[in-house]
Design a protein around this nucleic acid. Structure first.
Lengths: 241, 241
DNA sequence: TTTCAGCGTAAAAATCGCGTTAAAAACTGC
DNA sequence: GCAGTTTTTAACGCGATTTTTACGCTGAAA
């Protein structure tokens, strides 16, 4: 499968821990939050998985059967700057200092609260999104020969002719594009773009989507690009038939 | 004038804490490590110091006399991505989650080991070393036959005739030119040139851009060198149909 | 069939944002 | 302190954008 240009929706997290119950516990919590998971119960497979699947975050237990967790950390840091959160039963300050100075990004002592760990996961993932304000994947370009959308340049053209989009129009289109193929609910759009106090003002969306379709040359009877899911939301699709 | 962008040898750390003994303790430890220090004993001066001196790291106590630490964090996050380590006597998980989700980078509970704190400081500073791949040539020269801009010489001429630009005008033009073709957001310009406390004062930009266009001989009816992206920012483009 | 909720459209009304101007205030070098 | 320059402030017009309002259409349920 070729996923060039696709926006990876789920952050991918690698768990390296030999205790099955901890892995199980983490799996439940992280899956619920919508992360994609990889698991390893020893250092060797952890390293292999990390190299092969380039996760967005690694949660690493220091006590591993086959090697010391710090060795794994060192090995990973040879070639990757992926954020690493250390888990450890050891609360000794020296351990923490050593791990952090080896390149770990955070150090959480067992037992830990799941909400705190999840918040720290979010923090690391957030920090590693390199952008200035506008969080847009610069590789997010859509082009089917007729419609061309470049999110980073903020430019949209139909048949080579540039289209002027207003700020709100562009923001909505961007939200739909970044979830390409998937439904974006009305309340999601309203909350994100008009603010949480307007989640029920669906008429905003109706007229805006209408203008957007018109500008994109979207045939109302066919509805190529922006599809309506009645009562739910809208979906941006690349139609090529 | 603030001193953003300067290359400095010592990382600069801002401490915001109302307890003198904690400040004293941190001062000793951090100075020994070779950091440059700024100190504030309340939120207001903390915010001011942060805006004025753009530290590389902020250590923020949640319990401040004049405002809640989280408010300060929120205010700073309006315009800055500086790493923030929260100090707090409160060990409640909810507090940690709240602070981290507001944009804090780490949360350390008092009492803490000084070595651990120093390691966490190093971790944050290490993560935030900005090497933003795209190294722009500050000696860039633009020339389309009519307009000639030499950034290193700080000279601009139109039809061979030298144009006098004021310092701010030149700085804005330079910022736009170095991102040639791409949008520079209003808040980016305001933050970089007027300082982080003026991110919302868009009227500065309006009058300055107006003067700049006038001086560059930018015909408002035809194609602009400086294009406006309403509600977002400005973009410098080489005019060549 | 009737009813009705949800969507799309159109046009009017209100608001926002930009560009412009002019004058006041803050700097600058002398 | 003075004269010239630069920056900031304030106000206004205007076009673009957003919001409001009204109405027609459709498909599903009663």
């Amino acid at each position: 499968m070729n996923d060039t240009g696709a926006v990876r929706e789920k952050p991918r997290i690698l768990i390296v821990d030999d205790e099955p119950q901890i892995r199980h516990f983490l799996r439940i919590s992280l899956k619920t939050e919508g992360y994609e998971l990889l698991e390893a119960e020893n250092g060797e497979t952890g390293l292999a998985l990390c190299a092969r699947h380039s996760p967005d975050l690694v949660i690493l237990d220091l006590g591993l059967p086959d090697m010391d967790g710090t060795d794994l950390l060192e090995a990973v840091r040879e070639w990757s700057a992926v954020p690493v959160i250390i888990l450890s039963v050891r609360d000794r300050e020296l351990e923490k200092v050593k791990a952090l100075d080896l390149g770990a990004n955070d150090y959480v002592t067992k037992p830990f609260g799941v909400d705190e760990l999840l918040a720290r996961v979010r923090t690391q993932l957030r920090n590693n999104r390199r952008d200035d304000g506008v969080s847009v994947d610069p590789s997010a370009i859509f082009d089917n020969g007729v419609l061309h959308i470049d999110l980073s340049m903020r430019k949209v053209s139909v048949n080579g002719k540039l289209i002027r989009l207003t700020p709100k129009e562009f923001t909505v289109l961007q939200a739909l594009m970044l979830a390409s193929g998937k439904i974006v609910t009305q309340s999601q759009l309203l909350k994100d773009i008009w603010g949480p106090t307007h989640v029920r003002d669906t008429h905003y969306l109706r007229v805006l989507i209408g203008r957007l379709r018109h500008k994109l040359g979207d045939d109302p009877t066919e509805q190529h690009y922006i599809q309506t899911e009645p009562g739910v939301g809208y979906r941006f699709v690349a139609v090529c038939d």
